[in-house]
Design a binder for these strands. Structure first.
Length: 801
RNA sequence: GCGGACAUGGCGGAACUGGUAGACGCGCCAGACUUAGGAUCUGGUUCGCAAGAGUGGGGGUUCAAGUCCUCUUGUCCGCACCA
C-alpha cells in the first residue's frame, strides 16, 4: 500500500503554486479552453456534493491541459446572501469576517481534494473590487431604461419584517422563522427581463444542456401565442362606457363566452368606479385577496372565489351578446391583459366558477360537457365539430380555429398576440448583506444614478443586522450612509437602502474570471474575446433554471451595450447529480447521515475518494453514498502502484498495442463528456491485462499514467516522478491510432436468419468474400442456400437462407 | 392536471449513429497459500437441470430492437388557476 497521506500532501503543496496550472491570457500557441465550476456558496464546509461536482470539471481541466490547451479553470465564492447574514443575526459575527474565513476554508479544502483551480483568479461576490462592477452593470441597466422602480406585490414575513424571494418562502413559510408569508405592496426595483424573453429562448436553443433542464427554462419563460380580443363595456341599458381587452389561446371557443373575469387588481375597475354599483364589495374582495398568502391561494386551487361587478357588462364582438363581468383571484393581473373571457363548457376553471355562481353554459364544440369541461387538449386531438358558432357551426375545430382568428382580425375585433409567463425580475431585498444600489433619491431631481467614478458604493459596516419596524433594510438605520448629496444638483438627498438579491453577483461572474483584477472595467474586451464563451459549465441543478436565465439576460444586455463580445455565456452546461445518504435523502450539512468528503479523504486518500464517488454513477445521475465497493478502487490503485515493479523494456509492446490504443480512445471521449465511471472501468480493464501478462514497458506505463492522471492526479504524478524522473505536467496526453484499436484476430459473431450461432475467430483484414466463405462453413451452409448476407465489418455477419 | 426524464442480474451500473446484452466494480460461491483470516491470489457468477427464456408489460417496424414507433404500468424531476 502506498503512503497516500505523504504523497498527496506533497503534490497538493506543489500545485498550489504551480504556474503551469494557471491560465495565460492570449497564449501565443495553445488554443483556449474554459471550464467553469459554479461558485462556492460560502456557508460552511465543502460537502459530498462538491466532491461529485468539482472532480469531473477538474479531470476535464487536467485532461485539456495535457492535451495542450490553455485552460481557464477558476473558482470563487458566492458570498452575499443568507448564510452570512443569518450567522450575523444569530451570533453577531461580522459577515465580512464570516466570508473571509469561510472562503479561506473552502479553498483549503479544495486543495485537499486535489483540485487544480487557478488560485490567482479567486474572488468573492462580496469583495468591493467585484461588487463595484455588479453595481456598474446595474447603473448601465438603469441608464438604458432596463431598471425601474414601481409598486409591486411581494412576499413578506411579518415577523422578520422583511421581503422574501420566492425561494426564501417555499411552502408559504418564512425560511428564517417559519411564519406564514403574506403578500404586501412595496416599492420594488424591477429589471426588464420580460423584454428579453425571445432572446432568452434563443439562448436556450443554442446551449448544449440536458433536455429536461431546457424544458424547465422554456416553461419558466412560458411563451404562448393567441389572440388579444377587444370587448366593449356597456351599462345596464347598453350604452357604451369603455372597452377592455382579454387574451386567449382558444379563440375557437369565442361563441361560448358567457362571462368575463378580471383580475381583482385590474385598473379598469378603478377607471369605471362610478359605473360600478357594488364598488364596496369589490374593494372588500380585493382586500381579501391581498391578504391571502401565496401558499393559501395555491392550496385552494379548487375553490373558486370571486365577486360580480354590478352595473357593467361586456359585449362579445362576434355575437353582440351582453355578458356579465366578475373579478376573481384565479385571474392574474400580471399575465396577458389581466382579464379573461370565460367559456365554461371548454375550460375547467371557467366551468367550476360558472357552477359556483350559477352562470349559464353554452357549448360550442362537440363532446360531453355534462360533468366537466371538454378542454383544448381533448377537442383539438379529436378534431371535434363546432356547434352554436354561427357560420362556423359544423366545421372541424382545427379549421375553425384559423377561420375565426382570421375573422376577428379582419373585422378589427382583435389581433394576434404573444405572451410570456416570465415576469420582470424583482431586484431588491431589505437585507444588509448585499450590494448597495448606486442610486440616490433627491427631492428635486427624483431618482438619480451615482456617477461611475464614485463606484464602488461600499456597504457600510454595522453590528445591527435587523430591519426596522417598517421592514426597511438594516442599512436604513445608518444615517452616515443614508444621507448624501444629490450627484446632480448637490442638494441633500437619501440613498436607496435596499440591497440587491443574491442572484445579482452570480449573474456575470464568469466574465470577471477572465480579468479578475481589472480596476477600469468589468473585464478587458480583448480578453473576453480571447476566452469567449465558457466551454463547459458544471455545477448542481438546484437553482439552475433561474440562474442560467439570469446569466443569459445579463450577458445579452452586456452584449447590446458592447461590453462583451457574445450573447452566449456558456456553450455547454452540465448539471451534477446529487449524492444521497443511506435513506435516499439529499446529503447536505443538515443531513444526519451526511459523510464529509474530508473524512473519506482522510481515511482513503483523495485519489480514492475522487474515483469512488465517480465510479458510483454518471455525472448527471443521483447516487446513494456508500463505502461499499470502495475497496475496489483501493485495490485498483494499489495495483497501479505496483506497476512500477514490473516495468520491462521500452516502446509499445505488440502484446499491449491494441489495449493501449483502445484505452486512450475511450478515456479521451469520456473525459470530454465527463463520463468518469466508464473511464475508470477502461483503466481497470487495461491494468487487468497488464497483470495477466506480468509486464509493462516504460513507455506503456508513461502513457498509462497520463491517461489516469485526470482521475487520480496524486498517485500518477508521484509515480511519474519516480519512474521517469520528470514532472507529469510537462508531458503531453498520448494520441491513439484508430487503425490500432482493432485486433487482427477478432471474434466475429455469426447469425443465421437473425439467430446467434456463435462466434468465429477470424483475421479481420481478410476480404469480405473470404470472411463470408469461412462463416458459411462455420454454420454449415452452402453459397446456394444464402438469399442475402448482411456483413458489418468487425461487428457481425448474418446469413438469410 | 401539464411538461420532461428514466425503467437492464443480488446491488451500483455498462452497451458507439439498431449489430455477441449484462463491460467494470461490489456482493456471493469454489479453490490456493495459510495456525487462522473480514488479508492476498486463481476461477466462477442473468435465470433455468435442460431445451430454452431474458433489458417494467402488450403490440409493431427490421435480416437484426435495451436502443426506433405505438399503447400501457411504475418511479423521479420541473411547472402548477398563465387564460
Amino acid at each position: 500500500m502506498y503512503n497516500f497521506k505523504e504523497i498527496e500532501k506533497k503534490w497538493q503543496d506543489k500545485w498550489s503554486n504551480d504556474e503551469r496550472l494557471r491560465a495565460v491570457d492570449f497564449h501565443p500557441t495553445k488554443p483556449k479552453f474554459y471550464v467553469l465550476y459554479e461558485f462556492y456558496n460560502i456557508s460552511g464546509n465543502l460537502h459530498m456534493g462538491h466532491l461529485k461536482g468539482t472532480v469531473p470539471a477538474d479531470a476535464l481541466a487536467r485532461y485539456k491541459r495535457l492535451k495542450g490547451y490553455n485552460v481557464l479553470f477558476p473558482i470563487g465564492g458566492d458570498s452575499f446572501g443568507l448564510p452570512a447574514e443569518n450567522a450575523a443575526i444569530k451570533t453577531g459575527i461580522d459577515p465580512h469576517k464570516f466570508v473571509e474565513d469561510g472562503f479561506k476554508r473552502v479553498l483549503e479544502q479544495s486543495k485537499q481534494i486535489g483540485l487544480s483551480f487557478d488560485w490567482t483568479r479567486t474572488f468573492c461576490t462580496s469583495d468591493e473590487d467585484y461588487y463595484k462592477w455588479t453595481q456598474w452593470i446595474f447603473l448601465q441597466l438603469f441608464k438604458n431604461g432596463k431598471a425601474y422602480k414601481e409598486q409591486g406585490v411581494v412576499n413578506f414575513c411579518p415577523k422578520c419584517q422583511t421581503v422574501l424571494s420566492n425561494e426564501d418562502s417555499q411552502g408559504g413559510k418564512c425560511d428564517r422563522c417559519g411564519s406564514d408569508v403574506i403578500q404586501v405592496n412595496r416599492n420594488v426595483w424591477f429589471l426588464k427581463m420580460k423584454e428579453y424573453s425571445e432572446k432568452l429562448l434563443g439562448n436556450v436553443e443554442r446551449i448544449n444542456m440536458a433536455e429536461h433542464l431546457k424544458e424547465a427554462q422554456r416553461n419558466w419563460i412560458g411563451k404562448s401565442e393567441g389572440i388579444q380580443l377587444k370587448l366593449d363595456l356597456v351599462d345596464e341599458a347598453g350604452n357604451k362606457l369603455d372597452h377592455m381587452e382579454i387574451y386567449t389561446t382558444c379563440i375557437e371557443t369565442v361563441y361560448g363566452i358567457t362571462f368575463v373575469v378580471l383580475a381583482p387588481e385590474n385598473a379598469k375597475l378603478d377607471q369605471l368606479k362610478q359605473n360600478i354599483k357594488n364598488f364596496d364589495k369589490i374593494t372588500e374582495y380585493r382586500q381579501k385577496t391581498a391578504l391571502r398568502s401565496e401558499f393559501d391561494r395555491m392550496s385552494q386551487v379548487k375553490d373558486k372565489t370571486g365577486c360580480k361587478v354590478e352595473g357593467i357588462y361586456a359585449i362579445n364582438p362576434l355575437t353582440g351578446d351582453k355578458v356579465p363581468l366578475y373579478i376573481a383571484d384565479f385571474v392574474l393581473n400580471s399575465y396577458g391583459t389581466g382579464a379573461v373571457m370565460a367559456v365554461p363548457c371548454h375550460d375547467q376553471r371557467d366551468y367550476e366558477f360558472a357552477k359556483e355562481f350559477n352562470i349559464p353554459f353554452v357549448q360550442v364544440i362537440d363532446g360531453d360537457c355534462s360533468k366537466c369541461a371538454v378542454e383544448k387538449a381533448e377537442y383539438l386531438e379529436k378534431n371535434q365539430k363546432m356547434l352554436n358558432s354561427a357560420e362556423f357551426t359544423g366545421m372541424n375545430v382545427l379549421d375553425a380555429k384559423k377561420a375565426i382568428a382570421k375573422k376577428v382580425i379582419e373585422n378589427g375585433f382583435g389581433k394576434t398576440q404573444v405572451n410570456y409567463k416570465m415576469q420582470d425580475w424583482s431586484f431588491n431585498r431589505q437585507r444588509y448583506w448585499g450590494e448597495p444600489f448606486p442610486i440616490v433619491f433627491c427631492p428635486k431631481c427624483g431618482i438619480v444614478a451615482l456617477d461611475e467614478k464614485d463606484l464602488p458604493l461600499a456597504l457600510p459596516k454595522t453590528n445591527d443586522y435587523l430591519p426596522n419596524a417598517n421592514g426597511d433594510s438594516p442599512i436604513s438605520k445608518i444615517d452616515s450612509f443614508v444621507n448624501c448629496k444629490c450627484p446632480k444638483c448637490g442638494g441633500s438627498a437619501r440613498r436607496e437602502t435596499d440591497t440587491m438579491p443574491n442572484w445579482a453577483g452570480s449573474s456575470w461572474y464568469w466574465l470577471r474570471y477572465v480579468d479578475p483584477h481589472n480596476p477600469n472595467m468589468l473585464a478587458d474586451y480583448e480578453k473576453l474575446k480571447y476566452w469567449g464563451s465558457v466551454d463547459v459549465y458544471t455545477g448542481g441543478t438546484e437553482h439552475i433554471t433561474r440562474h442560467v436565465l439570469y446569466a443569459f439576460f445579463w450577458q445579452n444586455f452586456l452584449y447590446e451595450i458592447g461590453a462583451v463580445p457574445t450573447r452566449d455565456p456558456f456553450i455547454r452546461k452540465m448539471g451534477s447529480g446529487l449524492i444521497l445518504d443511506d435513506e435516499g435523502k439529499k446529503m447536505s450539512k443538515s443531513s444526519k447521515n451526511g459523510v464529509s468528503p474530508l473524512e473519506v479523504i482522510d481515511k482513503y486518500g483523495s485519489d480514492v475518494a475522487r474515483m469512488h464517488v465517480h465510479f458510483l454513477a454518471g455525472y448527471e445521475d443521483n447516487c446513494q453514498w456508500t463505502f461499499k465497493g470502495i475497496e475496489g478502487i483501493v485495490n485498483f490503485l494499489d495495483r497501479v502502484w505496483k506497476l512500477q515493479d514490473i516495468v520491462k523494456g521500452d516502446g509499445i509492446s505488440k502484446e499491449h498495442e491494441v489495449e493501449l490504443n483502445v484505452l486512450i480512445k475511450k478515456v479521451s471521449s469520456d473525459y470530454e463528456n465527463l463520463k468518469l465511471n466508464t473511464a475508470i472501468s477502461a483503466c481497470m480493464i487495461f491494468v487487468k491485462k497488464i497483470k495477466e501478462d506480468g509486464f509493462i514497458t516504460r513507455e506503456e506505463l508513461r502513457q498509462f499514467l497520463l491517461v489516469l492522471n485526470p482521475l487520480a492526479p496524486h498517485i500518477t504524478s508521484e509515480m511519474y516522478e519516480r519512474v521517469f524522473n520528470a514532472d507529469l505536467l510537462d508531458a503531453t496526453f498520448p494520441e491513439y491510432d484508430e487503425a490500432k484499436t482493432v485486433k487482427k484476430e477478432i471474434n466475429l459473431p455469426v447469425q443465421l436468419n437473425g439467430k446467434m450461432k456463435g462466434t468465429i475467430l477470424i483475421d479481420s483484414t481478410l476480404s469480405q468474400e473470404q470472411i463470408e466463405n469461412a462463416c458459411r462453413e462455420f454454420v454449415g451452409i452452402t453459397a446456394e442456400q444464402v438469399k442475402k448476407v448482411i456483413y458489418v465489418p468487425n461487428r457481425i455477419i448474418n446469413f438469410i437462407i
